[in-house]
Amino acid sequence: MGGIMVYEERNAWAGLIVSPISMVVYIVLILQQAGGGPLTSVDWFPLMLWVIGGSIVAVIILSILWGMVAGAKDPDGVGRSDIRDRDISRMGSRVEQAFVVIAGLGVIVLCAVGADVFWIANTMYAGFAVSALVGGVARVIAYRRGLV
């Protein structure tokens, strides 16, 4: 991660740092609440909302702090973006959409078989989380190696 990064690349890295941490935090909280009992008995909704909200805030704070450091090093280039940034963003969004579609299909199947709402909601949450993670990886690779 050496060198000066553009705003969009810093955001991709911030998401890659925060996403896995938030996924682990959510899983740990769910398992703690279950206390060895059935996961479907956990009051998952508030936990999910807090983790999602906390993740968003953490990415914003990390991006701001990282931007301040970058701005101190290169005041003129800190907020610049160009067509390459837009192309990388579009490519990352397409990768993310593929994983959201896969999660959506999983949710449809779970609904069809009458799965508990816990599994339905958490499948979608996992889809969003994996989507963000894979999209961030795709963006960072594109910044480091270029678009193919």
Rank of each mutant, 00 (worst) to 15 (best):
V109F: 09
A58H: 05
F99N: 01
G36I: 12
I52M: 13
I83L: 15
A138E: 08
I30S: 01
S63N: 11
D74Y: 03
S131Q: 03
I27L: 07
I60M: 10
V42T: 07
L31Q: 13
G36C: 05
Y125H: 01
S89R: 15
W44T: 09
V18P: 05
V148H: 11
L47V: 04
W50G: 02
Y143A: 05
L47H: 11
G15Q: 03
D74N: 08
P38M: 14
D82A: 09
L49T: 12
V101M: 03
G114N: 06
G114L: 06
L31C: 06
F99V: 02
V57N: 01
F99L: 04
V69S: 07
V117W: 14
A132R: 10
L47Y: 09
G53E: 11
D82T: 05
I64R: 12
D85W: 11
I61W: 10
V134Q: 04
D43R: 06
T123L: 00
I21T: 09
I83F: 07
E8M: 13
S131I: 03
V109C: 02
P75G: 14
I141Q: 03
A112F: 12
A115N: 05
V57M: 11
S131F: 03
R139P: 02
P20C: 12
R10L: 13
F128R: 00
I64C: 09
S41N: 12
